[in-house]
Simulated assay, not measured.
Amino acid sequence: MDILRVSANSSPNSVAGAIASIVRSCGQTEVQSVGAGATNQAVKSIAVARGYLAAVGLDLVCFPEFSTVEINGEERTAMRFVCFVLSEE
């Protein structure tokens, strides 16, 4: 599964396009963020991607969960959003 890493400086529209593209081709993706700003951008990106996919009859579903990642030798808590298409209309 492809993992998209989102930062506080990520453009929601660009990330949304990447989410929609990966979900169309692979059926699912994972969006990962560390920190409040990055998580905010990730959630906005998922909302925009849902709109992109709804326009072509796909229903994007997302499950949030906590994850632990290592950054510069330090363990950090990350948000992981598993996104996939629920059904075709």
Rank of each mutant, 00 (worst) to 15 (best):
M1G: 08
D2G: 00
I3Q: 12
L4V: 14
R5E: 13
R5T: 11
V6E: 02
V6K: 06
S7N: 08
S7T: 15
N9G: 10
S10V: 07
S10H: 05
S11T: 04
G17R: 13
A18R: 14
A18E: 15
I19C: 06
I22M: 10
I22S: 09
V23M: 09
V23I: 12
R24Q: 15
S25D: 14
S25H: 14
S25W: 02
C26V: 11
G27H: 04
Q28H: 09
T29A: 15
E30Y: 05
V31R: 03
V31I: 12
Q32L: 15
Q32E: 15
V34M: 08
V34E: 06
G35K: 01
A36E: 14
A38S: 13
A38P: 06
T39Y: 02
T39E: 15
T39P: 00
T39F: 05
Q41N: 12
V43S: 03
V43R: 13
A47M: 12
V48E: 09
A49S: 10
A49H: 04
G51T: 09
Y52N: 05
Y52A: 01
L53P: 03
L53W: 06
A54N: 10
V56C: 10
V56N: 01
L58K: 11
L58M: 14
D59W: 01
L60V: 04
F63S: 10
F63T: 13
F63E: 15
F63K: 11
P64C: 07
P64T: 03
P64I: 00
F66K: 14
F66A: 13
S67D: 15
V69N: 05
E70V: 14
I71Y: 02
N72G: 02
N72S: 13
E74I: 11
E75W: 07
E75P: 13
E75I: 04
T77D: 01
T77E: 12
M79E: 00
R80D: 00
F81D: 03
V82C: 01
F84T: 05
V85R: 07
V85D: 02
L86Q: 13
L86R: 14
L86A: 14
E88S: 13
E89M: 06
